[in-house]
């Protein structure tokens, strides 16, 4: 049991409204999977609407948990992406 539990890493994803979702992931998990899971929980179809930060640094969705150096209990900030200009202004 102890070893099995060690295999997983517990991550917290904190939204802008201070709601926290907990994830228990494998170290070799690609971040994109986590993001997609989070987006689905947030009822978002596209995970790219979120920006995930850890310690002020963006988390690439293509890297694994291990590659990013995430440890057990780390908290990830989820921000809704910001954009401006372009055709979006023409409403």
């Amino acid at each position: 049991m102890a070893e099995g539990s060690r295999k997983f890493i517990k991550l917290k994803i904190k939204a802008q409204d201070d709601t926290i979702l907990h994830f228990k992931v494998n170290p070799s998990t690609i971040m994109k999977d986590i993001f997609m899971s989070y987006s689905s929980k947030k009822q978002m179809m596209n995970y790219k609407v979120f920006r995930f930060f850890f310690d002020g640094k963006r988390l690439s969705p293509k890297k694994t948990v291990n590659e990013l150096g995430l440890k057990n209990g780390d908290e990830i900030d989820a921000m809704i992406h910001q954009d401006g200009g372009g055709s979006a202004c023409n409403y």
Binding site: R51, K57, R58, S60, Q82, D83, G85, G86, S87
Partner: peptide, 27 residues
């Protein structure tokens, strides 16, 4: 360093006018 770019669209948005720039570009 800030952002990992995997798509040429990122440069397209930055290079052509009237495009939507998101926070990644700005950052």
């Amino acid at each position: 360093a800030i952002h990992l770019i995997s798509n040429k669209n990122w440069f397209y948005s930055l290079s052509y006018d009237k495009q939507l720039l998101n926070d990644e570009h700005i950052d």
